[in-house]
Design a protein around this nucleic acid. Structure first.
Lengths: 186, 186
DNA sequence: ACCTGAACACCGTTCAAGT
DNA sequence: ACCTGAACACCGTTCAAGT
């Protein structure tokens, strides 16, 4: 019942989301070097050049994948932080810990994407939103001028630990020490 | 006065060190994607396959480059640590700080190699030697069973900061907080 | 026995040629 | 006007053919 695959008139052009879905599936199945433009195109049953309909170069596909992965984390973060501000207010280190664990979990679900995130300049909307949330938390914690540095330190630690494949226990231990170090007056 | 380049009898086969020199030069000049097996071979005026005389695959060239870069740092570290143990003994955080700054400096001299180090599993001799030195320092500091975790945390921070292009001031600030966090009883 | 370079199976990216 | 797929300039890797 499928349409004849070689007639352009019956073949619907793939969506940007379909292209990204295919890229992520290839990334999960075969790591970063499997998520080739040509294979992405083949996965959506199209010519290689269709990818260029949405992305000017391969790096743009990578950026879009990073954005997609960080978007969920950023949304969750927004909710957590406003909960924190409104309600009973657990200690800020706990909120950061939840955030960090969520980010790690999200990335470990797509190990092939780790290299992409590490290579990213984190200038996308979701990366910026995450950084902003962290900054707010640090500022609320009374770090003042050091809030920016503190949030950068946390980001550094979380991504470094993921790059070095820290296990869950090591990750928690290090995170707590980092948070302790930030909280201590120098 | 140069020998005719196309006569194999007068063309000396390149050394492993010459191959690595060429690879590092290409890495410095054009980033990771410029250090191609074919371009490395061309730089030493040979056929692509000469690289396979010394390295079974491209990843082995990358590992060798990481090893070469870390070797200097590891040697310096050995000297610093034994100084620390023998002499007037500055605080261990100071020794770690020197070590961390040296590693950062060494890697920043070859920005193209940063991705290689982050992708490496740090199982080479120099990486292990560095890890051992850090562990000794942590153990001397009285961390006991946490020495291993502490040294891993430091490595995580240093590599993470390099990956995220932290500037010198941010690097020092974060490093001191990390060291402070390790030093504090939980 | 050894080393080469041509060959193979891929890449990312572009753009003339068809509809 | 639009989209395709052939073409271009590269890759990493292998191995028959020469010395």
């Amino acid at each position: 019942v499928a349409a004849p695959p070689h007639n352009p008139r019956t073949r619907r052009a793939p969506t940007e989301a379909e292209v990204l879905d295919a890229a992520l599936a290839l990334l999960d199945a075969g790591g970063p070097e499997a998520a080739t433009i040509r294979r992405i195109a083949a996965a959506v049953d199209a010519a290689p050049s269709v990818v260029y309909t949405y992305f000017p170069e391969q790096a743009a596909v990578h950026r879009a994948l990073v954005e997609r992965l960080l978007a969920e984390v950023a949304e969750g973060a927004a909710a957590d932080v406003s909960d924190h501000r409104a309600g009973g207010a657990p200690h800020w280190p706990h909120v950061v810990e939840v955030l960090a664990l969520r980010l790690r979990e999200r990335l470990l679900a797509h190990p092939g994407a780790v290299a992409l995130v590490l290579g990213d300049d984190l200038s996308g909307p979701s990366a910026r939103a995450l950084g902003r949330r962290l900054c707010e938390l640090m500022a609320d914690a009374g770090l003042g001028a050091d809030a920016r540095r503190g949030s950068f330190l946390i980001t550094t630690y979380v991504l470094g630990a993921i790059a070095l494949s820290a296990d869950a226990e090591q990750f928690r231990w290090g995170l707590r020490r980092v948070l302790g170090g930030i909280g201590t007056r120098n």
